[in-house]
């Protein structure tokens, strides 16, 4: 497990400045919550699908949509039942199952969830962890917070391996079969010694990590330099300007109405 969701590439979106992309992510995700007719949300969704096609491929757009398909089906089935105002469209034995307003709301919810999903998916797929954290730091995320995130990513694979090793060790010691063969309750009960061991080993990592951080000057109160720096210059300003223009343009339909 790499502990990262980033898909390396050289598309225009990969090369787009991380800070500008973050503004675009927040603004574009918020757009799907604006009180607008579904046609505007559909246009935004189509635009994002086009961006997928031009950057990491249309096939990648299918991955997040497939993962949320069960939820989309639930939305399609249940939203009309919870929104029965307006002109009835489908009635069964006097009970209104769908109305015009309900269908409009259903379409809005489907477009909203799909649009937000694609927006976030594209951002994290085309932006590596270092760029994400440097961008957040540029916007004011404290150094200690970004340090916590980088340290957590460093330890996630380690604790995942630790869990597997401890789990195997406990299984061998117990001499029992797999969890499916020994029953649900026994399997759950057998988890706790494993989890306790993993937690104790994890907690024992705190002191060495703390001392390592102090030796490296964390918490010393002095200004810190940065190993990685996001580029500035004309390219950065033009991409930031473009992001701000796009986000501002997304507000136009609301102002126009």
């Amino acid at each position: 497990m790499t502990g990262d969701f980033f898909l390396p590439g050289n598309s225009a979106f990969h090369r787009f400045d991380g800070r500008a992309k973050l503004i675009l992510l927040v603004g574009s995700a918020a757009f799907f919550f604006y009180p607008l007719p579904p046609v505007f949300l559909a246009a935004a969704l189509v635009a994002w699908v086009l961006v997928f096609a031009l950057t990491i491929g249309l096939k990648e757009a299918g991955t997040p949509l497939r993962s949320i398909l069960p939820v989309l089906i639930l939305v399609a089935l249940l939203t009309p039942l919870f929104n029965r105002q307006g002109t009835p469209l489908i009635s069964v034995k006097g009970m209104v199952l769908a109305t015009t307003a309900g269908l409009e709301e259903t379409v809005r919810m489907l477009l909203r969830f799909s649009g937000v999903t694609l927006t976030f998916y594209l951002y994290f797929r085309t932006t590596d962890l270092q760029t994400i954290l440097l961008s957040l730091r540029w916007f004011g995320l404290p150094f200690r917070s970004s340090l916590v995130v980088t340290l957590a990513f460093r330890y996630i694979p380690h604790f995942a391996d630790l869990y597997r090793q401890v789990s195997d060790a406990h299984s061998l010691r117990a001499g029992e079969g797999t969890s499916s063969s020994r029953g649900f309750l026994k399997g759950v009960k057998a988890f706790f010694p494993t989890l306790t061991s993993v937690l104790i080993q994890s907690v024992k990592s705190i002191d060495p990590l703390s001392m390592a951080l102090e030796i490296r000057g964390v918490g010393g109160g002095k200004a810190r330099t940065s190993y990685g720096v996001l580029p500035g210059g004309a390219r950065f300003f033009s991409q930031m300007f473009l992001s701000c223009i796009i986000v501002a343009a997304e507000l136009l339909p609301i102002l126009w109405r």
Partner: peptide, 13 residues
Amino acid sequence: TKHLAAVAILTAV
């Protein structure tokens, strides 16, 4: 640093 390390470790956990 102790609390920072604890938060980082427990985030990973």
